[in-house]
Amino acid sequence: MLEVAGVQLAPLWLGTGGLTSLETVRRVIEAARPGLVTVSVRRTSDTGTGSLLATLRDLGVRVLPNTAGCLGAQEAVLTAELAREALGTDWVKLEVIGDEVSLLPDVVELVEAAETLVARGFTVLPYTTGDPVVARRLVDVGCAAVMPLGSPIGSGRGIADPHTIEAVRAAVDVPVVLDAGIGTASEAAHAMELGCDAVLVATAVTRAEEPVAMARAMSLAVESGQLARRAGRIPRRETARASSPMRGRVGR
């Protein structure tokens, strides 16, 4: 069982951005049975009616606030502080992006923000690049997990370079959570097969034609990928190797 900062969690984590109603949020969560559900922290004047938090509490899911959209360490730290106050959790998915086009992490600001937040008692789960050196830096400053991207946020391009995820896995001994880029279930399974401990999906589910069905597919995929990782894939070979016996073939 996946354990982050002493808490056992299911290996599928879910973002809710893009779902059209709280009723759909409820049905998607029931289908996914996620270990964590991420929420963003936004001005009350820009949020819709109806209480997302009440729905999440009713479902009994663990909420992970994010600092999505923050462009610098200072902004991310304040957003995390507000999230802690609003939601009563010191866990945070730390996201510091470098620009609003690529949405790629600004790793310099990210490490700085992570260090500050760890010192203030947060359990920090940073969204980062598929870079083992940065991952190690994040663990060095006290992050409880690292969350490398498969491909850019919302792109649905899957895991663009599996070697980066394997390199991060090999570099750290905290949980590795594939975050961003997943487009469909097989890619979530792929992340687990590469050695990730969990997968965070948002857009792939919330903007699927049938979000509830995709949530279920993701749940099965993550479990499947985890089993396959433990079972151990066969080595890749240059040439074919018959699985049926060559001896005793008819007419030979």
């Binding site: 893009g18 929420v39 922290v41 999505a68 939601l87 919302g154 919330t206």
Partner: peptide, 28 residues
């Protein structure tokens, strides 16, 4: 700076203050 809920009644507002009021929203 964050003002904790317990401190709201005793926190006076002044001309020019910048106040941010936030809550959870759907997000990824």
């Amino acid at each position: 700076s964050v003002v904790r809920a317990a401190e709201w009644p005793a926190t006076p507002l002044r001309e020019g203050d910048l106040v941010e009021v936030v809550t959870a929203h759907q997000g990824g």
